[in-house]
């Protein structure tokens, strides 16, 4: 089957319609704001469309767009110094760990969300890619444009920061595979 004259554009449209919701969700986790996530995805889609002729294997389009989202997010935060504005030296105070209390669970969820958003952008992005997108370390490194070792260190540091506040009260809250030596 040969391409129609507008085959590339039509394929791009199909890609956006099929995957934009998932891309938005990941972007939202990375930036923590709905409007900013939408701007981020729009920017990444523009980059993807501009590169569409090079994306010969269209099954790789999502990987390309995810990389655009990731690197653009990191770039935006670095450029705007949001890392310094949003990352705090002291993590949010954790709520009481009475997890049988529904209200407490909600509070715990809010705290963990705030803690996640307080991480430096690279740590936050690496955790989102590893534990939300379920990417391998190699895939995460590809999306972030860095080495696998960097991914390991960023994820480890991010989880460690979350554990620092959580303490050992709830060892199940964070991924058990990330045992951090303190």
């Amino acid at each position: 089957m040969r391409p129609s004259r507008d085959g590339g554009a039509a394929a791009f449209d199909d890609f956006v319609l099929a995957r934009s919701a998932a891309l938005h969700r990941a972007a939202y986790l990375m930036v923590g704001e709905q409007a900013l996530a939408q701007d981020l995805v729009q920017e990444a889609l523009v980059k993807t469309y501009a590169a569409w002729p090079r994306i010969r294997d269209r099954s790789r389009a999502e990987a390309y767009c995810r990389k655009a989202i990731t690197t653009t997010a990191i770039s935006w935060f670095r450029r705007r110094r949001w890392t310094h504005e949003r990352t705090v030296e002291t993590m949010p105070e954790p709520p009481p760990a009475d997890r049988a209390d529904p209200a407490s669970s909600v509070t715990q969820s809010q705290w963990l969300w705030e803690a996640l958003q307080s991480l430096p952008v690279r740590q936050r992005v690496s955790i989102v890619l590893r534990y939300y997108e379920d990417l391998t370390e190699a895939q995460t490194a590809e999306a972030m444009g860095c080495a696998v070792g960097t991914v390991k260190s960023q994820v480890s540091a991010g989880i460690a920061r979350l554990r620092d506040v959580l303490g050992d009260d709830d060892p199940d809250l964070l991924p058990s595979t990330m045992v951090v030596t303190r």
Binding site: R25, S109, Y131, Y132, D172
Partner: peptide
Amino acid sequence: TLKALMDERASAPDFA
């Protein structure tokens, strides 16, 4: 839990 939290949070907004 971390993944569940992210799933929950990510699915909340209605993205245009």
